[in-house]
Design a binder for these strands. Sequence first.
DNA 1: CGTATCGGATAAGATATACTTGATCGTTAT
DNA 2: ATAACGATCAAGTATATCTTATCCGATACG
Lengths: 314, 314
Amino acid sequence: MSDRLPPLTALRAFEAAARHLSFQAAAGELNVTPAALSFQIKSLEEHLGAPLFHRLNRRVELTEAGQALSPQASEGFQTLTAGWRAAKRVLDSGILTVTAGPAFTAKWLAPRLFDFAGSHPEIELRFAATLRMLDFATDDVDIAIRFGPIDVADDPSLHLALTIEEWVTPMMHPDLVPKYPTVESLLDATFIFDDSMKFLKNTVSWADWFGTHDLDTPDLHGTHFSQADHAIDAAQSGAGVVLGRISLGETALRQGSLVAPFETGLMPRANFRVLCPKGAETRPGTRAFLDWLAREAGRMEGLRDGRRIVRAGD
Amino acid sequence: MSDRLPPLTALRAFEAAARHLSFQAAAGELNVTPAALSFQIKSLEEHLGAPLFHRLNRRVELTEAGQALSPQASEGFQTLTAGWRAAKRVLDSGILTVTAGPAFTAKWLAPRLFDFAGSHPEIELRFAATLRMLDFATDDVDIAIRFGPIDVADDPSLHLALTIEEWVTPMMHPDLVPKYPTVESLLDATFIFDDSMKFLKNTVSWADWFGTHDLDTPDLHGTHFSQADHAIDAAQSGAGVVLGRISLGETALRQGSLVAPFETGLMPRANFRVLCPKGAETRPGTRAFLDWLAREAGRMEGLRDGRRIVRAGD
DNA sequence: CGTATCGGATAAGATATACTTGATCGTTAT
DNA sequence: ATAACGATCAAGTATATCTTATCCGATACG
């Protein structure tokens, strides 16, 4: 005698039918047609080699074999359901781990954390600020925000929840604004260099920016920063003019500690991708964060009003 | 959050993989390729929205979610397996109910019962001798032996395990044999009529039997029996000559209390069908009985040696 | 009594699911 | 360095599963 389990869908159909003592009700519970259920029961009976139900005129009754199977089947499926729920509960335990680069974490996420925490007190956010691409499986990360070239495809096993466009424009301390009324006047400015996007083929450097105004690049000198947020910090303290990334400067621009007085923006061939494991986008915590992220990212669009955004490499 | 269970095949794949901590071993257990198993796990992870295994170089480990699910999954499937076995045990409880017509039960099954019981002491046979076609589901019958026209199909939901051909030939008490040395001499005999096959379109009557010898049917008179076994009994007591069904006369022929001295047999367009619910043919008790039945039926073939069997209606 | 209704069974066709084959990739063992 | 191993992927195929539509027998009802 083979102790192998019969087809599990058929077993589940039987379990529901035995509980309701009605094929129709069971079909309803499983969201299938009565015909499908009838077929499943029949298939199960063939596997067993004997009927599980007495077909009476307008109802069904369990045979002896059915009576032996029914309680254990119910218990088995209950246990499975409980296990599945337990697994889900582990995931929705209220801890959401987000990874992003250090600059984005410091200049974009951190200032907004209070807002998110206010509307979702039940979710505890953890940030893992690193540039290394994390493995969702090994590092227990729920959401990753990565900046990369637009023509490099993401891991197909991940779900792309959102993209955020990045662009740069000259930013400076408010006190410096009168010194640079025109684009030409900027040529003599003290520059701050953000080298964080050097890895891109089409860079978005000062030379590129002046190029969009048909101006030759002057002899550029100033301080270089490999971390984008440090360049922003320097500009914020009045150390010079930075071709600042809008995602990182936005907070400062909003509160007035930085000003971006020029019309032209430059968009690199790269953007932010917000990724999570496939299927994870439906988990409540993940969904809440993604929704919030999309809303916040949308609010950044306002900064583009009245500006001319030039795509690099076009 | 949906509490619906994920695809059960995927769950079972996970259960095995979690137990072995190896996809390959799990695939072996379930008789599928490792690729299939990998796919199932992946699908389950997508349903959950998070990985269940840490993929390490040459092995896998359970994630936190996997650890939550694994024990309950194992327990659940164990319960289901236990229930399934319990249902099977009910069927193989050693009681086998066979239904057949009263004549076949009395003249064929009953004399052989001792033989079957001897070689299968663990099986308790129960006979339900009735002509009514029983419902396997409502009557808890395991095997049905039915006699019917060969051109009437059986219920397709039943398994046809065996057919036994029936034929008839003149049978009489040994003392009568010298009185009827030739076919022609039989024309004057005292006849016993077995009316049990009257329901057939192509009958196998005395008229038909004489017809195969190109003899006109004489004025037939004698005693009629509606039950075939009663006709055999009458012949056995020397009351006359019966055109006896071989299945029913065989036992008497073997022990010499009846003799069938003529060469010609007549085969009706009907036979015995041995039926059981689909799938039941693999149950040990059922199989033992069917095998035994086939063997015993085969032994009847010997009676055809040297005879001319004519099919009715040809 | 005939007719409507109910629950289940069936057949055929569509669709989704599950599996296999054959190849790839990164790691470990020889 | 090479081979072996375990997991994975892609493509094609097979099989299981579901739906639609119809049928059937038995109650319930006018």
